[in-house]
Every structure is written in C-alpha cells, then in structure tokens.
C-alpha cells in the first residue's frame, strides 16, 4: 500500500521551491516514513534547519518546525532539546550549511553526543546562492566560484563526525529511498547524536557544470559510486578511488548521552542542597538554648 504523506505535509504551502528532479524531496519523504514507522507523534517532533535549499524542508512538514540562521541549526536544536529533553529533535541541513559555516557546531554536537538526529543532504555544492564550491565539492569540479576547477580538498563528513564523537554515523544516497529510510530510522531510534549523510543531486548548479545536467542521470551516477560497507572493507585503495561506502559506518551505545548526563548533574546539585540544608538544621538544633535570649540577632 502506498504511504500516505497527507497527514505529514502542509499541503497548502505547496508548490515547494525545489527544482524539478531535486533529491531533497526523496530525503524528506524517507525521513517522514522513518518518523511514522517509529510511531512518532507530530506534536512531539521539533524539526530544525538552517539556511539553504535543504533547510526549506521544515516549512513543508506539519509539526513544530524551526527555520533558523545559516549554519546554526544545531545550536537552536541543542537549546530546544535541553529545554524539552523528552521531545524528538531532528535537524536537516545541506553540506555548506553543516560543514562550512556550521562546521564548529557540527563537531561540538558530535562531541556532546546529544540525542539529536542530524540529516545532512550532501549535493556537493551551494545550490541556493548559485553554485559556489562547498567543503564537499570534489577536487577539479567546476563551480560558479571555481571556473578553473576546485582546488579545495573536501571533507569526508562521516569520518569527520565519527572522529568528533557522534555515536551513530550512516551514509546513504537518494537513488535508494527504502534503504535511506532504514538508515534514518536507525539514527532516530539511536540514543545519542546521530548523523546520516545523504549523497544527493544538484543537477541545476553542480551537474550542469560537471557533465551531469540530467537529474536522473546524475542520480544514477551517484548510485554507481556507492559501495555497501561489507564490500568496501574488502576493496583495495585503487578500487576505492572515486567510490564511497554506504551503510551504518559507526555505532556505539556505551557513551553517555548529554541530556541524561545533565539530568544526573541536576540530581547531584539538588542532593547537595538538601544535604547542606539538613546539616544547617542539625547544627541549629544542637545549639544550646539561652535563657531569656530571643531568636533575633543583636542589632549592634
């Protein structure tokens, strides 16, 4: 049976701003299916984004949605999560948003291991601003600001976030939405900071400058370079060239989650206040009562 998206979308706000053939819709639909399959109630979801094409996603989904400033989505999400830790917080951001201007917030969110799901749509370009090279644009690729080819080495966002301390890191791509849904669901169900990098297509700004102007063809190209992790581990460095691994690349469950650590800190602080109050009360009770002396201290 076909999935019914009607309850999850603000259909009165359509049409959306994305180009025909854009991969962001596939990612958003996969995320929605993951939320429903986890039984999440829309009222209990805070869906947060920054600025860019991907970051327009929260405007179209029917839940508590927060469209923030460029690169800063994780900072707002961290505040929102700490203020209401029982609610689910999901962030969706592009590669420029999360890895360039928001890079500091990304690594520190990983370090804290706060229970937030971060979906990074990596189309290897700044789409909304006109196709400038991003921190994930491949070497040699043409961009609006790299007319001679890109010389900036790129980030491997999965390696970066694993190194920074994220406890669930997965990579998928937009050619396989069913598998993507499973990866996102795994991240949402995980207690801790979860990163799902999604290799996606921007034929408008990236593809047309780099011999992939057709969206379907570009998506096929992206899929053709993906290798399941089990196979990837057996490949030689030569075979790995130009390819990337997909699947759950990293998962650990024994690292403390930040909201829980803070809750324990609160309990400890309150216990210390209770202890101190008890000791003061005991000391007061031990004091000898003086005949005729009032409770009030001297005014001298």
């Amino acid at each position: 049976m076909a999935f019914n998206y009607a309850n999850w979308l603000r259909q009165d706000l359509m049409p959306h701003i994305w180009c025909p053939g854009c991969g962001i819709g596939i990612v958003l639909k996969s995320a929605i299916r993951a939320m429903e399959s986890l039984g999440w109630n829309q009222d209990t979801i805070g869906f947060v984004s920054g600025i860019g094409c991907t970051s327009r996603a929260p405007g179209y989904v029917d839940m508590n949605t927060l469209h923030t400033t460029h690169g800063r989505a994780l900072t707002f999400a961290t505040g929102l999560k700490m203020a209401a830790p029982d609610k689910n917080v999901v962030v969706m951001a592009g590669d420029g948003d999360s890895a360039a201007i928001g890079g500091n917030h990304l690594i520190h969110s990983c370090r804290r291991n706060i229970n937030i799901t971060m979906i990074i749509v990596n189309n290897e370009i700044y789409g909304m601003t006109g196709g400038q090279f991003s921190p994930t644009t491949p070497g040699g690729a043409r961009a609006a600001t790299a007319p001679y080819g890109n010389i900036d080495p790129g980030f491997d966002l999965c390696k970066l976030t694993i190194a920074a301390g994220a406890t669930y890191v997965a990579r998928g791509h937009v050619a396989n939405g069913i598998y993507l849904e499973r990866l996102i669901k795994g991240g949402m169900a995980h207690k801790g900071f979860a990163v799902i990098e999604v290799m996606s297509n921007c034929h408008t700004q990236y593809g047309r400058r780099n011999q992939h102007p057709d969206p379907a063809e570009l998506i096929e190209h992206i899929a053709s370079n993906a290798v399941m992790l089990t196979k990837w581990d057996k490949m030689t460095p030569e075979e790995k060239s130009g390819k990337y691994p997909i699947g759950v690349l990293h998962k650990e469950t024994d690292k403390p989650e930040y909201c829980e650590s803070f809750y324990k800190l609160q309990q400890h602080a309150q216990e210390r206040v209770r202890d101190a109050s008890r000791k003061i009360a005991e000391a007061e009770a031990m004091k000898p009562k003086r005949e005729g002396a009032g409770g009030e201290p001297s005014e001298n």
Partner: peptide, 23 residues
C-alpha cells in the same frame, strides 16, 4: 539548564531554541 556552548553564536542560538522550548 546551564549550557556552555562552543562559541558566542552557538550560545545565542541555544538561548532562542531554549526559549521556544518554553524556558
């Protein structure tokens, strides 16, 4: 809640997020 964030920008973002969460 007390948060020491990674920079001033993050601190201000967290404050707005916290406020929207009802704090």
């Amino acid at each position: 809640v007390f948060l020491q964030m990674e920079d001033e920008i993050a601190a201000m973002g967290a404050v707005v997020g916290g406020s929207l969460g009802g704090a």
